[in-house]
Design a protein around this nucleic acid. Structure first.
Lengths: 198, 198
DNA sequence: ACCTGAACACCGTTCAAGT
DNA sequence: ACCTGAACACCGTTCAAGT
């Protein structure tokens, strides 16, 4: 096993436990290499984090693609959102990265687009089945994925399952019966592009 | 005007624009004092941030107390949540602090408790009027205050008003008609205490 | 009592020297 | 080609020296 894999493994573990602020020194020590070696494989700390973050986005997108086979469109969408929120509940860095990471990085853009596409497919099925309000889009769902863990974050130490409460509260907001007209239009692909190039 | 006030003003402006990561050097320079002077008035960067964060929580609590006079309980709750979200949309550090700051600090605990009380009063009125589902509490509302800005954060550069979409989506989730039973109980005062002492 | 700026321990990053 | 550890510029914080 090469040092690159050792670094990815060490970084995944440290990031998951301690969040994005974990030091390069700690990651290098856990991988059993010198600090400088990290920059032999990744041009910056951000690049190392991006590599791991992309893998996690791809895993979630794959989960979503599997759920497209599910016969119940409403259950499929709920399970997709549940999977996204749970990944973040179990991984501090994933939760922080989902909120903070810009889409400027090309690899993150690609993974993010793949995720947006599967989210839109799942949402479209649920919309057609009449179980989700007509004005909610796949982009909305992607942005909503990290809401439950962030809402519950201040109490994560005391109530580790609290994010499930807010996942279901938000899911209730998606029901057709819930719908007042929303005051601002859904985000578009162009919005993501603009935000990425700032 | 003393250096303490100059520092609070400079820090408020820098934090609002650049978020919690702004350097002490920048704040000191803006206030026109040496770096060391900051620690003459605040024992740490965190203490300085806490002082400002508390003021903002108190301002929001005062807004909530005024809204208790409002004749329409539903409009009062919406305006309270709207005010909380808007403060965070206009102040990067307030948004970050609302998500990240622990309630361990006594002054923050006090401001946070005052906010929770007015939130509970507003929620109770709306609940009794039958315009908010029975299982949502004041603590839920406090935790939900920073959700709209966080959900919209990745697109804040491209769509500065997008948070309003998610504020109204979340507000729709609070309607009695929306209510499926939630799988996890609302947070309690005890949960906040436990989380604070970790 | 308050202010200053040099000093310290940390961080991410670079790079000359080794294999 | 890859690894290392000293060096650098930054950060928050401390503190002896000044007023």
């Amino acid at each position: 096993m090469g040092n690159r894999s050792l670094l990815i493994d060490a970084a995944s573990a440290e990031l998951s436990e301690h969040g994005l602020d974990v030091s390069i020194a700690r990651i290098a020590a856990r991988a059993g290499v010198a600090k400088g070696t990290v920059f032999n494989h990744f041009s910056s700390k951000e690049e190392l984090i991006s590599a791991i973050f992309c893998d996690q986005l791809d895993t979630l997108a794959a989960t979503g693609e599997t759920l497209l086979e599910h016969t119940d469109p409403r259950a499929a969408l709920l399970q997709f959102m549940s999977a996204g929120a749970e990944l973040q509940a179990n991984d501090r860095a994933f939760c922080e990265a989902a909120a903070a990471t810009s889409r400027a990085h090309p690899a993150i853009r690609a993974a993010s687009d793949r995720l947006a596409q599967v989210a839109e497919a799942l949402t479209a099925r649920a919309r057609q089945a009449g179980v989700v309000r007509a004005d909610v889009t796949g982009h909305d769902i992607v942005l909503l994925l990290n809401a439950p863990t962030r809402i519950a974050a201040p109490l994560a130490g005391a109530r580790s399952d609290l994010w499930r409460r807010y996942l279901h509260l938000i899911f209730d907001a998606l029901r057709p019966e819930a719908g007042h007209e929303l005051p601002v239009a859904a985000p578009t692909n162009a919005d993501f592009t603009t935000a990425a190039t700032r």
